[in-house]
């Protein structure tokens, strides 16, 4: 008997691969996408398709240029394009998601060395770039089930045009079903939670970061965002903006968040604190994207110093 393979143990391997994980996240995002199209019309679909296909194209192109194996089938580019378009208003011109995908894939991902080496969440870098370059497009939202423009609840609050849900003519139920102004993929909370539950059940994500993120935003908003201390509308704070989308789908990104459960919890706390600070005192009405990007930069530091409990069988 010869030609035997000799290698060190272990000699067997789990079947799950990268594409298994990425496709699961894509599947988990589908309900929210459907809700987005339902709420904002077919325009939302074109934005999503433009985002996804341009992301795939840039991924393939740049992999070819770098002389790497083209790995578009691992679905990570699809995921980036999808997440980017979920963070856009439904009525943006279609070149906007294309430019966003280019920044996300070429600058935030491939320039750093490709999947696994990027420090910042590519979709969020794309969004941050678009927000800086074309703020008007990025902050003009349309009213649900209508084509007239409307501000988001957080913007109304920031500009002092409405101080509470009653003045906005909205109920918590509208937030759960997505009947409010906002980005395509962030408005329908129920759809997002279905996706998050699916990922959690399949053990693709852990809830340490989302839990810390949402809890701290709720807590700080309850204490400081009301007319008096401990009078803030924390349910509104949790359901509005991109918090649910960001907490479950971007603060859980493997590559750009800490490795350990403890680290993920700290990451979530940081995100929550920054989100609250930006919403309360910042120039923008919403701060989820920036807070995640800022915390991305702290990940190496968190991983360096936060250790799991040793020897815990």
């Amino acid at each position: 008997m010869d030609n035997l393979i000799v290698s060190t143990s272990p000699h067997i391997h789990r079947k799950e691969s990268v594409s298994y994980i990425m496709w699961a996240v894509v599947i988990a995002l589908i309900p929210s996408g459907i809700a987005g199209v339902w709420i904002f019309g077919i325009g939302a679909l074109w934005v999503m398709l433009a985002g996804v296909f341009s992301a795939l194209l840039f991924e393939a192109l740049i992999c070819r240029l770098r002389g790497k194996k083209v790995s578009i089938l691992d679905a990570s580019a699809i995921l980036t394009g999808l997440l980017l378009s979920y963070n856009l208003p439904a009525n943006v011109p279609l070149w906007l998601p294309v430019v966003g995908s280019f920044v996300a894939i070429a600058v935030a991902k491939q320039a750093f060395g490709g999947l696994g080496r990027n420090i910042f969440n590519p979709a969020l870098v794309g969004r941050a770039f678009l927000l800086a370059a074309w703020p008007t497009y990025m902050t003009t939202f349309i009213k649900p089930y209508d084509s007239i423009t409307a501000a988001t609840p957080l913007a109304l609050l920031k500009e002092g045009k409405a101080l509470n849900l009653g003045q906005m003519n909205l109920s918590y139920f509208d937030f759960l079903t997505g009947g409010r102004g906002g980005c395509i993929g962030e408005v329908c909370i129920v759809a997002l939670l279905i996706g998050a539950l699916y990922l959690w059940v399949r053990k693709i994500i852990s809830l340490h970061a989302p839990f810390a993120f949402i809890t701290i935003v709720a807590l700080l908003s309850w204490i400081f965002s009301g007319e008096a201390l401990f009078k803030g509308d924390f349910i509104f704070a949790v359901l509005s903006g991109g918090l649910i989308l960001g907490a479950f789908f971007m603060a859980t990104d493997y590559v750009t968040t800490p490795l350990t459960a403890k680290g993920q919890f700290i990451f979530g706390l940081g995100c929550g604190l920054l989100t609250f600070v930006i919403r309360k005192w910042g120039g923008y009405p919403e701060g989820v994207s920036y807070s995640i990007l800022i915390m991305n930069a702290f990940v190496p530091l968190i991983d360096r110093f936060v250790r799991p409990k040793r020897y815990s069988p």
């Binding site: 990268v18 994980i21 999947l115 696994g116 493997y254 490795l259 350990t260």
Partner: peptide, 9 residues
């Protein structure tokens, strides 16, 4: 390349 998925942890 390590995805930092945390499975090993």
């Amino acid at each position: 390349i390590c995805l930092r998925c945390g499975e090993c942890v």
